[in-house]
Nucleic acid binder design. Structure first.
Lengths: 247, 247
DNA sequence: AGCAGTCAGTTGGTCTGACCAGATAAGCTG
DNA sequence: CAGCTTATCTGGTCAGACCAACTGACTGCT
């Protein structure tokens, strides 16, 4: 291509691609995980052993581990034996939620985008859940709702349970990714919304209304009515949106 | 509540909440970002200065910075002056895509979940784009398609452009979050799919078909036909799914 | 005056070696 | 054999040093 400089303004991009040592270490670890040679529960060699094997210093190893640690890919504990050392984690963590919050703060995404996207995910999850949910899951939701009934007076506690309930619904879709993304966005915006824009006066009423919608939602799921389920979720989400708009 | 141990098996959870020094540092930095006291482009104090201000050693500061670095929250460069030092990044990075890949490898999500969720996001983005897209964005898509026409023989290059095209469509929705999530999932699975399960024999045909669908999609967007746009996206996604099923 | 070359100073990148704290397992002692 | 002690392993943290990248001011030449 002899074509001269185009319109893209991206013909030249800064080179700066010198790989730092910790990045190399991190890359090796990530590759081992992606290739399945390190799976959930496996124990990693000690930092000292790794630094010897890789011919880098312990701080370089530590910086790589720190990154995986922060992403909830590994769990790190002092001490020897079965409990100590560094292991591949077998649980999801709040990384995505943290990322969302920071990205929002940095202006990459705005609140409306997150709300809309969460709603999309949550409605889809509800639709799927209407056909995929198990009896146990429905019972779990009932129990959560009962617990929430007794917590309408305690806002913090109610909100925590509310989050759990919605995640439970999303998990009933059989798609953990959908549930996790939805939950992450929910976490990322909850404090911005309810905690900030609803005063204690209107809270009891709103909580009561929410409980009613929650019950209708579970009913729809039990009946296998995907359309109604999605509708209740949308209505519920609208409640939060309105509370924000009113502020 | 005097209720005895319930069915939750989560009544007691491991405490292990001793905060490490780097976590404290990280927490402070995250708080500054979330509170908007550090915004895109701002320069952070040097590692040495930070370690002095916070009364922790430089390695502790570095570990905290490393985490933000890995999340593409900050960019780090050696040297002094306007280009050097540590700054809050003003661009999104591939963090979510990396996370997706690792979470998939660890069994938290499976390929089907990611494909389904990506499709959901992409269809919604297309729907929105049908009404929100600008003329410039449509022209950008046209240009990308033309470039792709000339790259059907070069699989790597075509796939890169293909990714760009789909992200461009999603961005036209006006919801950057939707676009970013979609792109991240796309990146996370592309190599698993196309690169692994399509041989060079069938490639040219598939690429030609894809181009046709791409053009129909842009036509639908130009016409403002949200339904058709979503349909073409779904059809396109199905093409990848099928290629996997056939393997 | 203008310019090129040089050098000092700052920043992150990396290493070494050390010590602490948590946690287990081996070993000693009564 | 029970129970305490100790060795030893783990990560957590630190201090201090040197290198490499980079800028900006200084210097000296033209």
């Amino acid at each position: 291509m002899t074509r001269p400089a185009g319109d893209d303004a991206e013909l030249f991009e800064p080179v700066e691609k010198q790989q730092r040592l910790f990045e190399t270490v991190l890359g090796q670890l990530e590759k081992l995980i992606q290739d399945g040679r390190l799976t959930a529960g496996d124990r990693l060699p000690s930092e000292r052993a790794l630094s010897e094997m890789l011919h880098v210093s312990r701080p370089s190893v530590r910086e790589a581990l720190r990154v995986l640690d922060a992403m909830d890919i590994i769990t790190v504990r002092t001490g020897v034996g079965s409990a100590g050392g560094t292991k591949i984690s077998d649980k999801l963590g709040p990384t995505i939620s943290r990322l969302m919050r920071l990205y929002m703060a940095l202006g990459h995404f705005d609140l409306d985008d997150v709300l809309k996207t969460r709603r999309l995910l949550e409605e889809e999850a509800a639709r799927e859940a209407a056909t995929e949910r198990t009896e146990e899951q429905l019972e779990g939701m009932d129990k959560l709702l009962a617990e929430m009934d007794g917590a309408v007076h305690d806002r913090e506690r109610y909100l925590a349970l509310d989050g759990k309930f919605h995640v439970a619904v999303a998990l009933a879709s059989g798609n953990p990714l959908l549930a996790h993304l939805m939950g992450s966005m929910r976490d990322a915006v909850t404090e911005n919304l309810v905690k900030a824009h609803i005063d204690d006066q209107q809270w009891p009423t709103l909580a009561a209304n929410a409980q009613q919608t929650h019950r209708s939602l579970v009913d729809a799921l039990r009946a296998g009515d995907a359309l109604a389920a999605a509708q209740y979720v949308g209505q519920h989400a609208g409640f939060y949106d309105d509370s924000r708009a009113r502020a």
